[in-house]
Design a binder for these strands. Structure first.
Lengths: 225, 225
DNA sequence: GATTGCAGAATTGTCGACAATATGGAATGA
DNA sequence: TCATTCCATATTGTCGACAATTCTGCAATC
């Protein structure tokens, strides 16, 4: 299970993020510091640092003197996230269509190839990491720190939303649509690229069940109060 | 000078943010932990927490084993911030035009009134805080945690950009344009409100000199005092 | 004269311990 | 039986100290 040596803050963040995305950690669950310190075999100080980062990403909420809890995004917030995401990703794609280096093209194509492998082998962990990572890689390729930070925030929140409201068992952010977008960018076809991206995001959002609010609270105390 | 009792993390963040916005802290300056701990009369642990939050807001960058430095946003990043801001603020205004409570209206009008007072009395500190606070209040009124967090991020970065690239001595985000926006929202006039907001943001961006970059300061204590 | 190597100093990273605060349940009284 | 008060427990908040890393100044060398 846990390594004998300590893990870095970033590793803790990624582990928690993945656990949330894979629905092993449900909204409302408290992330107790000492418990996590024991699991990751590090001191509480490092856990606190990781929790602060997770709060930045919108995955957990920290209540003073109470602790850190996995967020439960509302339906409206989910729609807001996708609304902003459509705009930001359009901005990213437009910038990329103005020209990318050969090295960037290779990196993008390699990433899609990795996604294909993960999909054929059906490795859930890799599929989740890579499908979000594709959109992050697009933003990184632009070279703007702000767009990258914004996209990371959006991807984190999208992962949480997907984990909560996904109504299919399959992860839809598949490599085929990603591959098409990459090729449109390579051809500097801004119209086609932005259209494909918009369609892709609509596709992702359409497979969410944003009408029904699920009963996620296992807070017995609140129910009996 | 510094108080005998310690200050909260949020107070430290606000103080640093204000110092950056007022150009007492220039991009590139290192924020040394021990020095700041002495200035604010708290332990380094709390300073580190504040620095992590400032990193989240995009105001400082933290390099491992090197320290925290005030960010210097590039011209391109400045344009990206305003691009995204136009979209998000449009979303906020549209949502507000669907109806706001009487209490919300009062809060918005009161805020504009405070801005007027600060402007007539020419209190720079209040002007900066309140002009950013107006846009933050709009997002808060919508009631979406995500939009609020996004707007806070955008406002922080905009403050830094304004501090770096402002070419006039006056703070242009004046209360008159804000007041017009509020009244359009009160009248549920979405077309006019979004138009006014777009014009307002164009106005703010137009007064920036996005060609030149300035140098940095070195006296941390004087800037924060 | 420019470059490299090496201490010493300065700064950040990490940890364990203690204080402050909230929670949950038992005891008490109406 | 229900509401209230109080206390034991668990959890978070804060701090000071030490370890690891990086920067700086100086001298030696090519």
């Amino acid at each position: 299970m846990s390594d004998q040596t300590g893990v870095s803050v970033q590793q803790i963040v990624e582990k928690v993020w993945l656990s949330i995305a894979e629905r092993r950690l449900r909204p409302g669950v408290q992330l107790k510091e000492e418990q996590m310190a024991a699991i990751f075999n590090v001191s509480r100080a490092r856990i606190r640092q990781a929790l602060a980062l997770l709060q930045r990403d919108g995955l957990v909420g920290i209540i003073p003197n109470r602790g850190a809890f996995v967020c439960k995004p509302s339906v409206e917030e989910a729609r807001d996230v996708f609304f902003v995401r459509r705009t930001v990703e359009r901005c990213v794609v437009e910038r990329l269509c103005k020209g990318v280096s050969k090295a960037d093209i290779k990196r993008l194509r390699d990433h899609v190839a990795k996604e294909r492998i993960a999909n054929t082998q059906d490795i859930t962990t890799d599929i989740i990491k890579l499908s979000g990572g594709f959109h992050l890689l697009l933003a990184e390729t632009v070279g703007s720190d702000f767009l990258f930070a914004t996209m990371r925030d959006l991807i984190s929140r999208s992962s949480l939303i997907t984990a909560v409201y996904r109504n299919t068992n399959r992860f839809n952010c598949g490599p085929d649509e990603h591959a098409e977008i990459v090729e449109a960018i390579v051809n500097n076809d801004a119209d086609r690229a932005t259209h494909l991206m918009a369609h892709h995001l609509e596709h992702v959002e359409s497979e969410l069940d944003l009408t029904e609010i699920r009963d996620l609270s296992h807070d017995l105390r609140a129910a009996l109060a």
